[in-house]
Write a protein that binds this DNA or RNA. Structure first.
Lengths: 248, 248
DNA sequence: TCAAAAGTGTTCATTATACACCCATGA
DNA sequence: TCATGGGTGTATAATGAACACTTTTGA
């Protein structure tokens, strides 16, 4: 009950030189980023996909990603992929999880860092008509196959979003700057995939006191137009709510 | 209003062969894992650290980590580090975040995947007297320096733990299989760094119905001994509570 | 018998949920 | 004038927070 311990010996003190050679030698892997880019359009939550660029996964949808170059910051690589594909700058982007199974990529060892991105589809609808890009309904994607381990990655990010959107004001990144409460509720219903009570939803958001009435109304609707609001990010940042409450 | 888009051209369809060369060529980085290993001893939350093995950070504490070999799974690498250092198998280990700033490591580009590990200190106290290993109080670590960007990594994992322990039954990994409610509360107070009401704490945990009275009591205490409980992981897994409630 | 922590309930405040009617607008 | 969704309040249930005394044990 002790002899089986330490199959491998602990490392000895290392010089920078020794470590350098280790780092520069064989101990390297290819690193990529993959972006799960969510959009919200026609009251549906969508993900931006591209047809696989490998024969092995021909016809399968995959996430947008690319290799990280050795002199490139991780986040920068994810931003680059986004910029390339959507033409958008300054979008919401968060690292979610790193996927590193040995055989996840047919070309060899590629470890990938998954990012979740939320973009406002209205503001750049035209940019993505070219290529093999495609906005796919999240609902249908849950039941379909994808190339590589991208289904895994997608599901992880989707669950991350579902949880996160209830505790942080991420969702507004998917809406125009000015939005109606109906739009906001539709968004939450789409992400969480369930109906919410309209009155309670309104009460909830108004009681948080982060919505600013911009004094405008919806246009081009066939019914009484709703008021438009914007989210007060400044006020939210100041608040820094402490998270409390044990429950599982 | 469109000409500034796509500074970089989208990729073209790739053959596996083309990609292979990319993956195998220069586009590689060194990848490591770093473990933030938490323990709970004498009613304090502690982290297992080692003196830096680089001259540059001599005297500074650092996390336990190692390079990931190209044919090694990420999680496996983290497990290996844990096994090497603590002699323990079968411990709680979760990936938290990947750190990839360009100059985070003096030996060159090293991207590191941070893991949070929770171990029961009682069950292997003797294994770590050798080396330069050291259990450091989390409280004091928050105010001190560390080598590399390990302070960042540590803080990220610590906040992760504080949040996570309130929503998932992680904490039990830091306790013996059988524990008193007082021990459990001490653990939560240490992690969250605040006092909790004893009666409400007990009510909360009993109402969850995951604690099994094992019919034993504490020994060697100078006061009325408390009952011992274990956590019913099976029951918890079956329950799969749906997370609901918008609030931020 | 003393010191120390175990064990235990109630009240009050806050928050979540369920639910229905009138109003403003454009067609 | 009609169809559509906007806007609003109340009652009830569930949960969270504050708070003190008696009991059991070992020293």
């Amino acid at each position: 009950m002790g002899s089986e311990v330490n199959e491998t010996k602990p490392q000895q003190q290392k010089t920078l030189k020794g470590l350098l050679s280790e780092v520069q030698s064989i101990n390297k892997v290819a690193l990529s980023v993959d972006c799960v880019i969510f959009g919200f359009d026609e009251n549906k939550l969508k993900v931006l996909l591209i047809k696989s660029d490998l024969k092995k996964y021909q016809g399968k949808w995959t996430l947008l990603g690319d290799l990280v170059s050795p002199d490139e910051d991780l986040d920068a690589a994810a931003y680059r992929v986004l910029k390339q594909r959507t033409g958008m700058d300054d979008v919401f982007l968060k690292q979610v999880k790193t996927f590193g199974k040995l055989n996840r990529h047919p070309a060899g060892r590629v470890v990938t860092v998954a990012y979740c991105s939320l973009i406002n589809v209205q503001s750049h609808k035209l940019r993505i008509m070219d290529n093999e890009l495609h906005w796919q309904d999240v609902g249908s994607l849950v039941d379909s196959e994808m190339g590589f381990d991208h289904k895994d990655i997608f599901l992880t990010c989707y669950k991350w979003l579902q949880k996160r959107v209830q505790e942080h004001p991420l969702g507004f990144n998917l809406l125009p700057k000015k939005f109606s409460l109906r739009e906001l509720q539709n968004l939450y219903e789409a992400i969480l995939n369930r109906k919410l009570d309209r009155r309670n939803f309104r009460k909830k958001f108004f009681s948080m006191n982060f919505l600013i009435d911009v004094g405008e109304e919806e246009h081009n609707v066939h019914h009484r137009p709703g008021k438009l609001y914007k989210f007060d990010f400044e006020k939210y940042e100041k608040k820094k709510k402490v998270w409390a409450g044990i429950d599982f």
